Simulated scan of single mutants.
Amino acid sequence: MEIIRSKEFTATRAWGAKNISNINGITTRLHWTDKPYNWHINDGEEVFVVLDGVVDMFYKDNGLEQSATLNAGDIFYASVGTEHVAHPKGEARILVVEAEGSV
């Protein structure tokens, strides 16, 4: 049993994470960041939940770059093959649920 105060979580580097759980190969991790990630395609599905802060999510849909601003409480679902990159505006805390070892 553990209570995690996500707004208090920080990491020593951008996209540093706290591993919360691994349930049958599906990981749940809390990330802290103040810098963009890299464009990538996950090996499987990904659920990306903004817990604190604001994140501009860029993604490609039929080869065209799109974007959406995600605020606290917003969820981005990346299906298999969705190329995407997150750009926080300042500090952000993000809950990511994905297959273990996914990019």
Rank of each mutant, 00 (worst) to 15 (best):
G16Y: 04
E8A: 12
N19P: 06
G16N: 01
R29T: 06
A99S: 08
E83R: 08
I23G: 01
V103Y: 11
P36K: 04
H87Y: 15
E45S: 08
F48W: 07
V50D: 01
K89H: 09
E8W: 01
Y77G: 04
I3H: 13
E65W: 08
V49H: 09
D52M: 11
N62Q: 15
S6G: 01
V85R: 10
M1R: 11
D56Y: 07
V49N: 10
A72T: 07
A11W: 10
K35E: 13
H87A: 05
D74E: 11
F9T: 06
W39Q: 08
V50M: 08
K7W: 14
S102R: 04
R29W: 04
E2H: 11
W32K: 02
A78P: 02
V47N: 06
G53M: 07
L70T: 02
E45F: 10
A92M: 06
A14D: 13
Q66C: 15
E65K: 13
T10E: 09
H84I: 02
I3C: 09
D61S: 15
G44E: 11
N42R: 14
E8I: 05
L30T: 07
G44Y: 13
A17M: 09
E46S: 02
D56H: 07
I4F: 09
K60G: 04
E46Q: 12
G16M: 06
N62L: 07
G90N: 04
I75P: 00
I4M: 10
M57C: 06
